[in-house]
Nucleic acid binder design. Sequence first.
DNA 1: CCCGCGATCATACCTACGTATGACGCGGTT
DNA 2: AACCGCGTCATACGTAGGTATGATCGCGGG
Lengths: 223, 223
Amino acid sequence: MTRPNQAQPPAQPSSALVIVVDDDEGIRASLDSLFRSVGLQTRLYGSPAELLAGSLPDGPGCIVLDVRLPGVSGLDLQSQFVRQGISYPIIFMTGHGDIPMSVRAMKAGAVDFLSKPFRDQDMLDAVTAALERDAQHRAEAAAKEDIRAQYETLTAREREVMGHVTAGLMNKQVAALIGLSEITVKIHRGNVMRKMGVRSLADLVRKAEALGVSQTRRTTDQT
Amino acid sequence: MTRPNQAQPPAQPSSALVIVVDDDEGIRASLDSLFRSVGLQTRLYGSPAELLAGSLPDGPGCIVLDVRLPGVSGLDLQSQFVRQGISYPIIFMTGHGDIPMSVRAMKAGAVDFLSKPFRDQDMLDAVTAALERDAQHRAEAAAKEDIRAQYETLTAREREVMGHVTAGLMNKQVAALIGLSEITVKIHRGNVMRKMGVRSLADLVRKAEALGVSQTRRTTDQT
DNA sequence: CCCGCGATCATACCTACGTATGACGCGGTT
DNA sequence: AACCGCGTCATACGTAGGTATGATCGCGGG
């Protein structure tokens, strides 16, 4: 079980990290000073290889990426991140971009796509938006991860019972469905409530929804 | 109460509508024949004014829009749609677009942004994606509207009780909270279950979540 | 003025839920 | 072999939920 990471206050901009990948050292330097001037931490890389060599930090942050890069292109790097589930929001910069390129990047989830030269303020606005998106994403992921950690302490039977209970079945129906006595279902149900850290069925249902583990998805609707 | 619009089968492409807005009659004509060739219905307009003059159809569909248009620009029209809650997915075309324009459009939710001239297949792919997005959106909106229609049949008291019950409170707690006897809460609760068309608390909780009407949002978590 | 509807509450009864106690079997670990 | 976690079940008791019957009250419309 991973450590519960409950309600952390939203990370202040001051603790956020901006990862810059650009092959032009001048750009790197000026972005570095731009970001530091507003209290952001930075990491500078000249190529995707450099970035991928080290381990990615796991704090809040975002990536500022040139599209044209030595080795892997920025867009390929983006797809790679998406495939690997790396969720840092990405801001693209380009000196020789075109519309299809920008559209592709935005479709793939980029926060912004800036043509060089850009105004400092545009970049800062984009980074602000990216950090907000990241904070939002992190909060959701952390909440979901806590729930999943609790779910993983359940035994197979308990998960089965949880699925049926949160689908709205009565104990006796669950019992008949999986061939148990009602009292056994009650015991599993009690264990589920305890392990999932809830005291009401309503809360259990919400956690089950977050996990997507409700079993019998039939329509109980009948006005 | 609006008519329940339960589970309609996903609209076939053949019944979907593509709304084309372009001031070039040649473009309109060729898009018209392109879309009709794959079984789509079309409506052609030379300007936003023409489009806004008539009433918008409410069937499934999408909009194909030139950015540069007489009167209101395509992007302004898009913002206008967003503000008015009009949810037709939009595909932009442009002959003289630039990157900021495309990025702005994509940020505002456009499905695609094609530079003229584009390949027919690219346009068809974009329309297919747009119609899928529309169908998805429609299904969700319809489901939510059904639930809201049921919710609107509830009296003020019943809604109040529903909020507390779906938050996980026991009947007696609800009673104490709003100054009623437990038996009265039970009656309201029974009415809620009947009017909302559910037979289990689990289903009620899910409908309440869809509506966002749970009251006491305190943390019951305590591992 | 009466009616209907919503809201309120009481009594009563049944069902469902939750848990404690105690028990047995099975499979894997020490 | 002894132990432990898991699963299974029974009995028993207390609490919570659900509904039916019947009653009172206030308010707005016919």
